[in-house]
Amino acid sequence: MINALVKLGRNTLSVLAGVGSASIMLFQSIVGKPQPLKMFPLLIRQLYVVGVQSMLIILISGLFIGMVLGLQGYTILVDFGAEQALGPMVSLSLLRELGPVVTALLFAGRAGSALTAEIGLMKATEQLSSLEMMAVDPLRRVVAPRFWAGFISMPLLALMFSAIGIYGGFIVGVQWLGVDDGAFWSVMQANVEWGQDILNGFIKSLVFALVVTWIALYKGYTAEPTSPGISAATTQTVVYSSLAVLGLDFVLTAIMFS
């Protein structure tokens, strides 16, 4: 009993210490004199690596998830004679929940793990140390552009995910199953609100972007500089950011939509 409490206390302290040092890392990387001329090419490069290279998986997943929603939604709604409600069902589930959440999960797996592995490897091969010895701050030079790239890309990816998912729902619902074209869009438009649904979903994905990118960078930066250390850090990035996204999603949903 006492041992369990001791363990709980120790774990709590180490989690708190982790959050503290992660905050310090983030603060040191993004706060300071901005150097747009130096930062911009680095940012473009990272936007390419983090954003553009994740685009394909996001678009394909979004399309399929939208199509599945269309199919499942139709079979349920048609029993109540309410297949007109397919539009809002597909679009609201995508905009409010699936868009931000699934994008964040895929992003953690695709880009987050890659960020952790890359930075971990840079640490293991002494590239970070060598930057420091060249009087270049690795936080500003390596961590900051990757953070901004992740923070900017993920909400954009979530927008694409929702848009193409709605289109997937449209293909299945209207083109294939024969829901009325006009009703699909108009009932959707009557029920989807700019501020309530699209904006809130966007805010969600901003929060997820912050958390996932942050965890990925922190895990890479503090990884044990060995092969098992880096692979453990990569796994932790995916596990922790998925859990954080799902947990935060509940909190945000409770705040926004209740």
Partner: peptide, 16 residues
């Protein structure tokens, strides 16, 4: 592409 998605959501999906 992201801007196109946003425009699509704003014009075609949302209540305007």
């Amino acid at each position: 592409a992201a801007i196109a998605a946003l425009v699509f959501l704003a014009l075609q999906v949302a209540n305007n």
